[in-house]
């Protein structure tokens, strides 16, 4: 385990440096001027020029970049132009709500997706397989904003069972988490289905049956674990994508997450916030990939014990 971590660390550092550099260049090459947006379009050119000077935007790009890298290495991620607070503090302020939503959606997706996928892939019953295919196709094709609005109409307005917007309680979490989870359920279910169906053709499944196990015992005891590696990969990737990519759901349910923060920061050319958020998400993705790697070796002893007699 220590070996895997040590091997992965330099790669992770490189990935994060790449993410920082790319986003630094992209936000600056994109049209639009933070000073103008900050001060308002009725300001005089002299005022705008003064603000640009004080924000350091008149420096050459490479000098700004080196300055920024130096700052990042000392743990200073710059200030938000708009909020006049440390950018990382702004981003971290949104992280708990985002993590809450993403973790809830991932838990739903893994539980529902594994169950549906295992039933379908085990082919205990072909009707179940078709039904699961139909359900997952639906989950994948409904647009997120539509599902969100339908849930609000049904559960918040008609039955008044759940609050329609905001965050803070478990009741607030249900609808956004479910909405975010549906396409994720579909991905996990389809992947699990094909992976389980493949494992079912392995000979050790016959051995398990020859021991007099029931089909569910064969599936859960022997097939599932050997089918999980591709699922772990996709769950890790998808979790990272949801961290900053839940903008639509956050907007529909007025959820104070990272996605809407980043979209606003991009619109306002609030460079420091965009960069801090990108760095944080890249960091989480690097850690998740490491966790996935560790999970592979936990799942498959042939990976874990590679190189040992």
């Amino acid at each position: 385990m220590v070996r895997i971590v040590a091997r992965r660390l330099p790669v992770g550092a490189f990935v994060m440096w790449g993410a920082v550099t790319l986003i630094f260049l992209i936000v600056r090459w994109a049209p639009g001027d933070p000073a103008t947006l900050l001060i308002g379009s009725d300001a005089s050119p002299a005022e705008i020029a003064g603000l640009r000077e004080s924000l350091g935007l008149n420096e050459p790009l490479w000098s700004q970049y080196l300055h920024y890298l130096g700052q990042v290495l000392t743990g200073d991620f710059g200030n938000s132009y708009r909020l006049d607070q440390p950018a990382m503090a702004v981003v971290l302020g949104r992280l708990p709500a985002t993590l809450e939503l993403t973790v809830a959606a991932t838990v739903i997706a893994v539980l529902a997706g594994l169950t549906l996928g295992t039933i379908a892939g085990g082919r205990a019953d072909r009707v179940a397989d078709r039904l699961v295919s139909a359900i997952t196709l639906g989950f994948q094709s409904f647009p997120t904003f539509w599902v969100g609005i339908m849930l609000i109409l049904l559960l918040a307005l008609t039955f008044q069972a759940l609050p329609s917007a905001g965050s803070g309680t478990a009741a607030h979490l249900v609808m956004p988490a479910v909405t975010l989870a549906l396409p994720f359920v579909a991905i996990v279910a389809r992947l699990t289905r094909s992976s389980v169906a493949e494992s079912m053709r392995e000979l050790y499944v016959q051995t398990a049956r020859s021991k007099g196990l029931t089909e569910p015992q064969v599936l859960v005891g022997h097939v599932l674990r050997n089918s999980l590696i591709p699922v772990v990969t996709v769950v890790a990737l998808q979790f990272g994508a949801l961290l900053g990519g839940a903008v639509v759901v956050e907007n529909v349910f007025a959820w104070p997450g990272l996605g809407s923060l980043v979209v606003n920061a991009v619109a306002n050319r609030d460079y420091a916030v965009v960069q801090a958020a990108t760095l944080l998400i890249a960091g989480v993705i690097v850690v998740l990939n490491l966790v996935a790697d560790l999970a592979y070796s936990a799942l498959d002893p042939r990976i874990r014990l590679a190189g040992r007699p």
């Binding site: 000979l203 050790y204 674990r225």
Partner: peptide
């Protein structure tokens, strides 16, 4: 119920017939 307890089976390829994990 008869499988394993009354009638058991040995397969040709033991590597494939044993669960790798």
């Amino acid at each position: 119920r008869a499988r394993g307890r009354e009638i058991a089976m040995i397969f040709q390829d033991p590597l494939a017939a044993l669960n790798p994990s």
